[in-house]
Structures are given as C-alpha cells and as structure tokens.
C-alpha cells in the first residue's frame, strides 16, 4: 500500500538530490518524482472498486451496468473512452465518460438523475464516489490505445467549436481564460508545471491521463472535476456537473489530444 509516509520519503529524496541552484532546476527533480509516483499509483485501487460496482445489480431496476453502451455497443468497453466525448443517438447529445455513466445509471438501473449527479464528486481522503470508480474501471479498457475523438456529427462539431471559443474566453476579476495558464510553453504556477494545450505533444502527454489520482486529495478524479477546479481557482461561479461548457471543453481538448496513448490511472499532484 502506498502510504503517505513513503510518498513523503520519495519527495524528501528528490529534495536531497535535486540541484540546489533553485527555480530553474526545479523541473528536473519534479520529473523524477512524478515518474516514481506513477509506478505505484493508488489510483489502481479505483479500477478494482469500479469493476465491483460496475457488475453489481443496483438501483430500483436491480440491474448492473453491463449493458451500458459507451459508444462501441452495449457491454463493449474496449477502446470506448478513447473515442469520448461523442454523440449518442439515444440521448441525442454529445456525452463524455461521466455523462454516459449517469445516463446508464438512470436508464438501466432506474436511479434518480439529480441524486446521482449530486453525489458524483467524492470527498477528499475517502473511497470517492461510485462514478469516479466506475469511470476509472471503464477507462482502463482503453489503456494502450490512442485517443481518437471524431467530429462527424453536427453536434460534435458544435461542441468542438464552442469548446475552442470557451478555451480562449477571458472573464472574471482575474481576467483568466484557460489560455492564460495553458497557452504558452514552459510555464509554472509555483512548482506546478502548466501543460501548454496549444502544443500538440504537450496536450497529447495529458489527454490520455484521465481519470487520475490526485495525490494532494488522496482520491481519484475525472475530467469533470478538473474543469470545475479550474473555474474555482479563477474566481468564477461553479461549473455545473455535466454542463454544456464542460462537455464542450472536453470535446475540444480531447480532440486536440488525439493520438495520445491512454494510460490510466494518471497521477496528478
């Protein structure tokens, strides 16, 4: 079990061996640390838990999620999340991984949509929500495959263009848009490297890394949470779970990251 103590030990080791020269060299030490932490990723536990929940008969209809269609046909999980977000005819919407799990919980299991959405994001240092675990399990079936989001349907194209527009949209008292922090090379906030989403290689390095284990919170997270957290930090109102803005941004970013190799669970600070 990857304990907090062993993680601190790893970080202490990095501090000892990283060059003392300061800010310029911090990057190299951080990279070593990240690689080490990826090798023993607590996020793996979410795959196990997700598998159990996925196959359990639950909800008023006492059904499992085994017949859920993630885009490759009911029950076919292999390669499914590598194609998300995508248009689904049964809901007539573009849906991401979280949305699709919720759709299936409602239609297959009879769960209440608002109740499910309310408990979608787990509390730090807990086992997390059912959705977070199911998402990790389903996404793991795309490991090793390349992101391949397509823009064939008019609604997919609408989401992509809207997402692009929103990525560059600046608002609020910080005047931040996604682009402010994610539009230039070699930038950091304190010691946290910022992914340059306008660089193909950089975005490919992260596009396949969600859902991911968030070390500081001791819990696994989906992209829905990540987008929410960005808007929080920007001093903007709360991004609603499964909102159009969240789907639009995910569609844009995942398409930009096409070609990325899926590798979940990812590991974030």
């Amino acid at each position: 079990m990857f304990t907090l103590r062993s993680r601190i030990a790893v970080l202490a080791l990095i501090c000892l061996f990283a060059p003392a020269a300061g800010a310029q060299n911090a990057g190299a030490g951080l990279e070593v640390g990240r690689k080490m932490l990826l090798e023993d990723n607590p996020g793996e536990l979410w795959i196990d838990r997700g598998k159990r929940i996925f196959h359990e008969k639950r909800g008023p209809k006492k059904a499992s999620l085994e017949q859920c269609d993630f885009g490759m046909g009911p029950g076919n999980l292999k390669g499914a999340t590598a194609r998300l977000p995508r248009y689904f005819a049964d809901t007539d919407k573009v849906e991401d991984l979280d949305s699709r799990i919720v759709t299936c919980m409602v239609t297959l299991q009879g769960s209440d949509r608002e109740q499910v959405k309310k408990s979608a994001i787990g509390r730090p240092l807990t086992d997390g929500s059912d959705i977070e675990a199911i998402a990790m399990y389903v996404a793991s079936h795309s490991n090793g495959m390349k992101m391949d989001v397509r823009l064939d349907h008019p609604k997919e194209r609408e989401m992509y263009k809207a997402g692009e527009y929103l990525f560059f949209r600046r608002s609020g008292q910080t005047d931040f848009g996604c682009v402010t922090c994610h539009g230039q090379p070699d930038k950091r906030i304190r010691l946290q490297d910022l992914v340059n989403m306008l660089d193909k290689k950089q975005i490919q390095a992260v596009a396949g890394s969600w859902p991911a284990y968030r070390g500081a919170h001791g819990i696994s997270r989906t992209m829905q949470w990540r987008l929410y957290d960005c808007f929080w930090q920007m001093r903007l109102p709360e991004l609603a779970y499964l909102s159009d803005v969240s789907i639009a941004l995910s569609t844009y970013l995942n398409y930009q990251g096409n070609g990325a190799v899926v590798k979940v669970p990812g590991f974030k600070r």
Partner: peptide, 27 residues
C-alpha cells in the same frame, strides 16, 4: 454561430450563491 452557442452555454452551465456572483461570467 459558435459565439452565440457558446455564450448560451455559459448562461446555462454555472451556479453561484447569488445571482450577482453569476455576473462574474459577463465579459
């Protein structure tokens, strides 16, 4: 068309404790 779609999305995708705080999204 994209601008219209996206701005409508912004109006419908956020919550805040008071309506006044939603104005933070206005550019």
């Amino acid at each position: 068309e994209t601008r219209g779609t996206a701005e409508s999305m912004v109006k419908a995708s956020f919550t805040a404790p008071t309506p006044n705080l939603l104005k933070r999204l206005d550019q």
